[in-house]
Design a protein around this nucleic acid. Sequence first.
DNA 1: TTCAAAGTTGACTAATTTGCTTGGTTAAGT
DNA 2: ACTTAACCAAGCAAATTAGTCAACTTTGAA
Lengths: 159, 159
Amino acid sequence: MRLTTKGRYAVTAMLDLAYHSQQDPVTLTDIATRQTISLSYLEQLFARLRRAGMVTGVRGPGGGYRLSRAASEINIAEIIEAVDEPLDTTKCAGEGNCQNNKACLTHDLWMGLSDQIRGYLKGISLGDLLTRHHVQEVAKRQEQDTKVVEIHRQQRVGA
Amino acid sequence: MRLTTKGRYAVTAMLDLAYHSQQDPVTLTDIATRQTISLSYLEQLFARLRRAGMVTGVRGPGGGYRLSRAASEINIAEIIEAVDEPLDTTKCAGEGNCQNNKACLTHDLWMGLSDQIRGYLKGISLGDLLTRHHVQEVAKRQEQDTKVVEIHRQQRVGA
DNA sequence: TTCAAAGTTGACTAATTTGCTTGGTTAAGT
DNA sequence: ACTTAACCAAGCAAATTAGTCAACTTTGAA
């Protein structure tokens, strides 16, 4: 049972976006530095999120990404599935042909588990996460940390 | 979110064992043919299950494996964790050092998910599964299918 | 006592997936 | 024009998975 960084990055980036894009769009470069995710990898993930209709890209200077819907209307399950990480623990993707075209001994067990996981993550929206204390604290800490990074960058340029 | 065949095979094999080892021990060869799992791969999994104290090996002719405890005393979560498939969806294995030694933005979310999964699977025992209609049907079908295989084998030897 | 059935162990491997990198093109604001 | 940022495509190295192969040990039965 493993969630790869793909799904984790996608949710983290979306949460960062929800937190920072109240008015202006947010650039992937900003998200990448705050969340320490590779920029080009983020681009790939956002291509999928855009195709899934969850974010809107704004090109040109001052551009970036915005949520296409309200944060409370985007749940975690759909983010993870949008980047192609299936929330499914069966071998047969729920088809029931796990063993010689018939259901395997434990098919129903994994179906139940998958429903459990999907149900749990469907019940949580980006909006829900935003209201959590822990998320707010971490987000503030990250803003401080990245400000420091920017000062360092400017000092290097100035020197 | 993906459960690998490692964990799935382990649970399937344990369920097969629970179903067939009412008196005599069951050989891995039998389990391998019934569940279409590679024998040598099964051996690796059972080595771990044995070290975890869940099964007992009986050597020599007529040997095989037996459950060390009652089927109702073995839950699915411990089987999966015994074969080294962690039921944990955080990056940091729950340590909270996911980003530069501090908790990442979504740490709590994955902790909650992991608890959810573990709780669900802890609440289901091999004994519970045995009583399910679907499991009984599939197990009977598999016994028929493997009998057919054996007849074919004998016919080939006879010819 | 010897054979063979079964468990036990360890090393090695092919295929797949992941998490990137590189190197672009296109659109929009200044 | 120039810059900024989204958008796109191909390729690649490390890790993981799902095994195979080959040897060895223990034990019951003939």
